[in-house]
Design a protein around this nucleic acid. Structure first.
Lengths: 234, 234
DNA sequence: GCAGTTATAAGGCAAGTGTCTAACAATCGG
DNA sequence: CCGATTGTTAGACACTTGCCTTATAACTGC
């Protein structure tokens, strides 16, 4: 799967003339790691880099620096920096969903509890620290212009909503005698309610990202709970 | 990073052959513009660049290219590319608020109408096209690491919420006989409701940004309306 | 121990970037 | 019509980045 552009390198005359002998340079001693470990190192370093330096500072070389390896190693494990970025995105989506699923699993028979656990998971420090959300935002930007990112994004989105829907569909029906009130605030189609709740999550993520002091962790979760009650317990 | 347009090769052979004196006529003709026009050109080009190329492709030189001026001009009007980015952010905030304010102004006595106009304004194609939202996301990322951006962000946030609050406070009180239902979905503190609605807006922005086909313009507005009814017309 | 394997480091190169500087020319006052 | 002002261009420089290639050294099995 290389298919890189053919590089018609003109074999410059006398390539041997250059003394390739290492000038007794002190080569760093290295601890050899298994490919999987190194790959993970690079993936992690990418997230960290995105978080600390933003998209502009996240260069292949910087990632390697952060991972403590030489810049040549990136190419050894990934086609190029963009590819590394993409795989990091895939990984993050996967981890995130797994984390949420695990968090709501114990609440099989308690939909409200599951919903709460969902929110807690989504705002958990490990998976949605301000820093990591910064990485998400970089990925979101890629979604718009790159097809591979868009595909992953769509899949992630669908799976996340499916999780939500599964919980919500088990909630007790919204209280019998609904007078429909003066405003047409009657029943909300499930898809709409999910879409709104999903938007609340994303929006609070951003708020939290922009300033975790302005809208701290606990308040985000509380707001999610309230929004859910408003949407589903009318 | 980012492979882009192919580069026209102009291998001028003799570096010394070209004297310091301009080689007669290689210089582009220029139309001289007023400082304000040129500044605006550059600011606009920045947004456009962010939208088209994302943060990584938005370099000082690229902005100038897009604006149709030489790269030296940037420095003539701005301290450096970062400064240009910052001023673009300020401008965008200012314009956005002005646009929203103008949109809701005609609905002084009709809070529900004003709220709807608010949503329409926020999702108006001119001010929140998918492309422009891309620019917003770049700016958001700066907020976290740069103090000047954070200050502008906070101010913008406060002003936007003040606008919302002004509308919401004029809504008719939430329908007399509130049975409080089986769930404690009673009254929501104003600040909480505003925060939630605000999150819905941001979240739908992202949704819209990620795929305007998945969540098109009109649906975003409809979802906002529904969320508002749920939050304020219980 | 000593091959062979291969993870890893490091250097070179072309291209692009930000910053600076000097030159040029469009416009204006006279 | 000319000289001053200053908007504007374009070249130079140091540096960084991505990509490629080669040398090196840390492990492997024998």
């Amino acid at each position: 799967m290389m298919a890189d552009a053919p590089v018609p390198e003109i074999p410059e005359a006398g390539p041997e003339t250059r003394p390739k002998t290492r000038p007794a340079g002190a080569r760093r001693r290295v601890k050899r790691e298994s490919p999987l470990v190194r790959r993970k190192d690079l993936l992690d370093a990418t997230v960290s880099c995105l978080a600390r330096l933003g998209p502009r500072g996240t260069t292949g070389r910087e990632i390697c620096r952060q991972a403590g390896v030489s810049h040549g190693l990136l190419r050894h494990y990934f086609r190029n920096p963009d590819n590394l970025l993409f795989e990091t995105y895939e990984q993050l989506c996967e981890d995130m969903l797994a984390h949420v699923e695990a968090s709501i699993a114990p609440f099989e028979g308690d939909p409200w509890g599951a919903l709460h656990a969902f929110f807690v998971a989504v705002f958990s420090d490990d998976w949605a620290s301000g820093d990591i959300i910064g990485a998400w935002m970089v990925f979101w930007q890629q979604v718009r212009t790159r097809d591979d990112f868009a595909i992953v994004s769509t899949a992630f989105n669908m799976r996340q909503r499916a999780l939500m829907e599964r919980i919500v569909s088990r909630l007790p029906p919204p209280a019998g005698p609904h007078p429909s009130g003066p405003q047409p605030s009657g029943h909300l189609p499930m898809a709409d309610a999910i879409a709104i709740l999903s938007a609340v999550l994303d929006g609070l993520w951003i708020e939290y990202y922009l300033s975790d002091r302005r809208t701290p962790h606990d308040r985000c979760i509380a707001l999610c709970d309230q929004a859910a009650r408003r949407l589903f317990a009318a």
